[in-house]
Computed example of a mutant assay.
Amino acid sequence: MRPTITGLGPLLDQIGADTGMTISTLGVLAAVPLVAWALFSPLAHDLSRRFGQPRVLLWSLVVLLAGTVVRSLPGPVVSLWIGTAVIGIGIAIINVLMPSVVKRDFAGHVPAVTALYTALLAGFGAISSGVVVPISHVELGGDPAGWRIALLVTGGILLPFAIAVWWWAHRGRRAHSRSASQHGRTGIWTDPLAWLVAAYMGLQASMFYMLVTWLAAISMSTGRSEVVAGVDVMVYQLFSLAGSLLLPLVLRGRIERFAPALIPSLAIVGAAGLMLAPGAILVWTPLLGLSSGATLGMSLTLMAQRARDHDAASALSGMSQSVGYVIAAMGPVVFGWLHSLTGGWTASLSLLLAVLVLLTVVGVFAGRDRYVLDSR
């Protein structure tokens, strides 16, 4: 899932030079998957109930592979936009259903399994960010492979295996799951706690996609090369992996109640550091990464922990990711627009800092031990 998205940021300069897109347009391109997630996330719960989670997830992986191929087709730039949108649709369904799968199959170990899941997202995303630029420079027939081949390799190389393994692991599983209550589909949109989880999801996702899209550009503005800037994005995501794995250690005892509000503090320090001393990017990137991975794991954990069963978890996941990615989609676009407007990164990083402060405030209320769809 993640490599299809994270390989884009380090290649934005190449894509812009090849297609003539402006910085603002590239920001919109980076936001296309987020818009798709906002639009299609609400469909995942109903699709799962009608066809069963295994089948829906299998076909979502197929859609993801198709989008990855279309995005890299040579010719008109429209294939880049269409492929990116199709990628977004495939990931939208998977994003929603995975917390429900964790709730169903690992109900007694939700934080630990969610940490493993988010760590794998961060790890493979980091690899994609680190190798995508070198792959684009590999010579094929005397010419560089280019950004299209690089995105195809990093985004698509594992998907055929994922499709095969998922099919094998779930062969024979029942296709339909209609017995659960219908209340989760309707009541979830009027539940105040669900809106808090959605806000937490959206704000942390906005932080991640602002950084994964523009961190390479920020790095290059300090004099670092394109390849090194890609490595900086990889380092950010490797520390995100570490943050995901460390989260279960935080979610213990009394501190669990305050964890959603405390975790963003590391990123607040990192964002302020990038504003004040951008040359020390290798000092601030680990702080941003640790917080990013932990807040993603925290948001997915909230989707499972704030629901009493996997059907409610699926409904909460669909609603919160739909709302959340509406918030997140604005992040990379406004971040890039502020850079175009001012010519520097201070205004953009001020936006990031404001998002993190708001994430902290929302975390105070989302951390309370309550359940969605419970009668008041």
Rank of each mutant, 00 (worst) to 15 (best):
I89V: 15
L61C: 08
G108I: 03
A66R: 02
K103G: 00
H109G: 02
M98V: 15
L116S: 13
P99D: 05
I82W: 07
G130A: 14
T118P: 01
P134V: 12
Y117R: 01
T84H: 10
I135S: 01
L65P: 05
D46I: 12
P74F: 03
L121E: 12
G90H: 05
V96L: 05
F106I: 00
L97E: 09
Y117W: 12
S100T: 06
N95D: 11
V110Q: 06
A107W: 00
V63M: 13
L47C: 02
L39N: 09
S41C: 13
S41R: 02
G52P: 05
W59P: 05
S41T: 13
G75Q: 12
G75E: 12
A126W: 04
Y117C: 01
H109S: 15
G88L: 05
V96F: 07
A115T: 00
G52W: 04
G52E: 12
L58F: 14
G123M: 12
G52D: 10
S60Y: 08
S72E: 11
R50K: 15
I89Q: 05
L57G: 07
A85K: 08
G108F: 00
L57A: 14
A122W: 01
V131H: 04
A122H: 04
G130I: 05
P111S: 03
G130P: 05
G125L: 11
A112K: 05
S48Q: 14
L57R: 03
V77A: 15
L47N: 01
V113Q: 02
I93C: 02
V63A: 14
H137P: 00
S129A: 15
I94F: 05
V62T: 10
F51I: 08
R104E: 14
V131T: 11
V102W: 00
I89T: 10
V78P: 05
P134R: 10
L73M: 14
I89W: 08
L58G: 11
L61I: 14
G108S: 13
V70H: 13
G90K: 10
V63L: 15
V56Y: 06
V63G: 08
G75H: 08
W81G: 09
R104C: 00
R104W: 00
I82F: 12
P74M: 06
A119H: 03
S136H: 05
A119Y: 07
P134T: 04
G125T: 04
F51E: 06
S48F: 03
V110T: 13
F106T: 02
F40D: 03
V78K: 00
L73W: 02
S100W: 02
A85V: 03
V56G: 09
L47K: 03
L61E: 08
L73V: 12
D46F: 12
A107L: 00
P54Y: 13
P54G: 12
V102D: 00
V70A: 14
G83Q: 10
V96M: 05
V138P: 00
L47T: 02
D46T: 15
S79E: 13
P99C: 11
F124V: 13
G130V: 09
L120S: 15
S79D: 12
H109Y: 04
Y117K: 02
D46K: 14
L43W: 14
P76D: 12
S79R: 01
G88E: 08
S128M: 09
L65D: 08
V132W: 06
S48I: 09
D105P: 01
V56E: 07
L97H: 01
L121W: 10
I94T: 13
I135K: 07
L47Y: 01
H109W: 03
V133K: 09
F106C: 00
